[in-house]
Amino acid sequence: MRRPLPGDGVGVRALPASRDAATEVELIWIEKRLEHWIRFGRIAAERIVSRKTRVVSFRPNAVFALCRWASNDFGTVHSRVDILRAVGPCEAYTTAPFVRPGGELYLSIQGWAKVRAVLAAVDAVERAGVDPCDAAPDHWRHVHNRLSAGDAPRLYTAERHAAWLTRKVIEG
């Protein structure tokens, strides 16, 4: 009898239902060449694939920011930040590189100057005493729209956050 090979499906167990619903993000780090990192988000699980690659998982409805950066011998060639909400089973989603299956996209910005502005907006939310995961989705959409148009986004304040929390209660 031959020994099972990886990928044969022999000895592979079905994933628990809670893990099936998870959104997985592949994070890569190759020094001075390629970096993917989570700027914020509540990571539910982490799996190390290799010295340079790991996969983190988020439960449905978790909000997270994925930053990606790549360079070559001449400098930065790509920088991007995406803010997404992890989706549950049977929910519609937008595909995003390195995110399986995808998520509800709140913000997607490319170019180092704009990415830096998004990171500054995240820092401003934290300075307001709010975890960026809990900030209103409309704020991240606003940041995306304003930066895409070349304008500065409004600050997220504790008052705006209180209004968002009240709206969530009213909407149920």
Rank of each mutant, 00 (worst) to 15 (best):
I48R: 15
R19E: 13
L34R: 13
W164P: 01
A121G: 09
P89G: 07
G102C: 04
R19A: 14
A121K: 09
L27P: 05
R51S: 11
W69H: 13
P60Q: 05
A124G: 07
I43K: 10
D123S: 15
R160L: 14
E35R: 11
S71Y: 03
A152S: 15
R100C: 01
E46I: 06
W69D: 02
A163V: 04
E46Q: 15
A86D: 02
P101I: 09
T23A: 07
W37K: 12
R42C: 01
A65L: 05
Y93N: 03
P16Y: 07
A44V: 09
F64T: 00
R100H: 13
I43L: 10
L107M: 10
D138T: 11
A96S: 15
L165E: 15
S50V: 01
F58G: 03
A136N: 13
S50I: 05
N61S: 13
T23H: 06
E35G: 04
S148C: 06
A96H: 04
A45H: 09
A22Y: 08
D138W: 03
P4A: 09
A120R: 14
P6R: 13
T157L: 09
G172A: 12
H78I: 00
R154T: 05
A45N: 08
L107P: 05
L147S: 08
R146T: 11
S148W: 06
V99P: 08
D151N: 15
G7K: 08
T23K: 09
A128N: 10
P16D: 10
A152D: 12
G103E: 01
K32I: 00
T166L: 12
R85Q: 12
T23M: 14
N61P: 00
R127A: 15
P4D: 07
E24V: 07
E171N: 13
W112V: 03
T23P: 07
W37H: 07
A135M: 03
A152H: 09
A22K: 03
W37C: 10
V143W: 04
L27V: 00
I83N: 10
R54G: 06
L66C: 04
G172C: 03
A158C: 01
A162S: 14
G41P: 04
R51Y: 04
G111T: 00
L15A: 15
Y93K: 02
I109P: 06
